[in-house]
Amino acid sequence: MCVAGQNSGGGGKPAYRRGMRLSTVILPIHRWAEGRKTWQRAEDLGFYAAYTYDHLSWRSFRDGPWFGALPTLTAAATATQRLRLGTLVTSPNFRHPVTLAKELISLDDVSGGRVTLGIGAGGNGFDATALGQQAWTPKERADRFAEFVPLLDRLLTEDAVSQRGTFYSADEARNVPGCVQRPRLPFAVAATGPRGFRLAARHGQAWVTTGDPKLYETGTPEQSVRALRGQMERLGTACQEAGREVAGLEKILLTGFTPERARPLDSVDAFVEFAGRHQELGFTEIVVHWPIPDSDFAADQPVFEKIATEAVGQLS
């Protein structure tokens, strides 16, 4: 079932507001006694949403603390009241649509309808082999993703689902009472290729990108903008083919992976310039990483908080 026009959140409130929004990613690296404070601070600062990565471990953080995404989000739901919550992103690497749907419905209920599912095809990092399997090729990941998303869509919108697929099946999978958000919680689909764009156009309420990974090390900001403009154009083509207005799809940029890296967090002015350039491309939400000292996401905490409270007002 396609829910491309969905825009409702818990309590009848819109899941997405128009205009530029600022959100954050909080990595699940702290025990909850400490982590709770960060999620509550994100709400106090006025961030639109706070996401976390859905990995079993990740990059340079592999040998340190790393907690599960959905339990962390459930705890965050009980510690906050207004902040939207979500994954950025979940993938099929170690998930199955049937069990994921049950957990998402539970999380949406606990949060009162504040959940967004960021979802992507996954990569070849630690998650790809943690269950003992060989890492999938890019084509295999795309094939699985193309089956995963439509089945998850059905599981979150129908009371009972039976479906036999090549990779994923369901046999009378029951999901009563369903999501608080109707017809289901929103999907933010990560995509840079044609098959992913088609899934975003068909099933997404938002599209997520980190830019062109080939430009991260040696590219320029100007090249990154051109690459993102090209992605926007391909998204528009996919929406046109799906009979949908691209304007109805939110566009999310997860920062930290473009040639600018962390420089937009150097000052309010630097961030406003960066965000404004991407707002002109059509992005409606910018996501920044909560500062982590001695990491790729190191940033000055007072400056970061000043950006959170002042920057969006200059962009709206």
Rank of each mutant, 00 (worst) to 15 (best):
N175K: 01
A190N: 02
P150N: 13
A142I: 12
L131E: 01
V149C: 02
A130S: 15
A146V: 06
A188V: 03
A170P: 04
G178S: 13
S162R: 01
E103C: 06
I105G: 04
G118W: 00
T137R: 12
L152P: 08
D108K: 01
R184Q: 02
T129W: 04
R114C: 04
P177G: 05
A188M: 00
R182Y: 10
S162D: 05
T166E: 12
P186H: 08
Q134I: 09
I119M: 03
R184D: 09
E103R: 10
T192Q: 03
P177R: 05
L107E: 00
R114Y: 07
E140Y: 13
P177V: 05
R144L: 10
D153E: 13
T137A: 13
L156K: 09
R198L: 00
T192C: 00
L185S: 07
L152A: 00
A191Q: 08
R141E: 08
D159Y: 01
E158M: 11
G112A: 03
F148S: 03
L104V: 10
Q134E: 13
P150C: 14
L100N: 06
K139L: 11
V161P: 13
L100E: 08
P186V: 08
A160Y: 06
V115A: 14
D153S: 07
D159F: 03
F197Q: 03
F187A: 02
E147P: 14
A191P: 15
G165R: 15
E140T: 03
E140G: 07
D159R: 12
L156G: 10
L156H: 02
R154L: 07
L100K: 08
D153T: 08
R154V: 08
E140D: 01
A188Y: 02
A130H: 12
F167G: 07
R198E: 03
G122R: 11
T157L: 00
Y168T: 15
R154I: 00
